[in-house]
Computed example of a mutant assay.
Amino acid sequence: MYKFYKKTCFIASLSSAAILSGCATATLLDKDDGVRTRTVQSVLVNDTVVAFGKPAQAVSTLPADSIVIVGQKNSYVLTSGGTRFAKVITGLDPKLIQIEKALTFYSEKNDGQFSGTLPLRYVKLSEDVTKQDREFFIENGAEECTTSSDHRLKAQRFCFNIALSGLIYPTATNSASLKALSKPYSVTIYTNEHVKDYSKAGSKTADKVMLFPFAVAFDVVTLPFQAIHKIFD
């Protein structure tokens, strides 16, 4: 088989230099695509959360139950998942809720839309977990994620991974007057970028997050429950 291939290539080289040239070009293109092209995560914005709230007045382009994550640079309006988020943090003892990871959202096209998950952890002594607690966990999609350390402390841990999606708006016009969280909490939005030179990845997209088209700033009022502030105390 090898000899036949070798002979065929020799004949091709004698009969047509153009064919040989075309094969070489294809090989170089394949090698270039395979070696140099990368898909990397590019951060569009890093922001600090000021408060959690809702629009002070109805906004015609937003659902009535929208929740706003007020940032220093932008407002991140939750159009999906916000109701579940509010239900979970108001239905549990806020002192036992842990939010250990920053909010990380993905924007596929950097068009003002984003999606991601908010991981909440709820830890309680096993003897204090009631039937009502378990019904709440089942109803709201919690999974038991008790660690070996929890077992030693005779505690149980339950994990909520709340799917969120929304739109990026200008920062709230009254953000300076809102009661800020006592602990810093960050929000990051990223996208995937296809690059050939890995060293230059993110250089064109960093801190260039796009707002949702026609988005306008509005006043925000903090949510009518204190659980958020207790979680971040």
Rank of each mutant, 00 (worst) to 15 (best):
R157I: 13
T171C: 14
K196W: 08
F136E: 08
K200P: 14
P119M: 06
F105M: 14
P170E: 08
N161R: 11
L178G: 02
F160Q: 01
Y185A: 14
A201Y: 00
K179S: 12
R152I: 10
R121V: 14
G141S: 00
S115T: 15
F160V: 10
Q113N: 11
K179R: 07
L103S: 05
G166M: 06
D197K: 02
S126M: 10
F160W: 04
A163I: 11
S177Q: 03
Y106H: 15
E135S: 07
F158C: 09
I138G: 12
K179C: 11
L120N: 03
S199G: 01
L167M: 12
D150Y: 07
G166N: 03
A155L: 05
I162H: 01
C159H: 02
S149K: 15
I162S: 12
T188N: 08
S148M: 08
G112D: 02
V195R: 01
G112N: 10
K200F: 05
R134Q: 14
S126V: 06
N174A: 11
T104K: 06
A201W: 06
A172V: 00
T173D: 07
L167F: 07
R121Y: 09
Y185D: 09
P170L: 01
A180G: 11
P170M: 04
D128V: 00
T104P: 04
E144L: 11
R157H: 12
T188D: 12
C145S: 14
S177C: 09
G116L: 10
S175C: 05
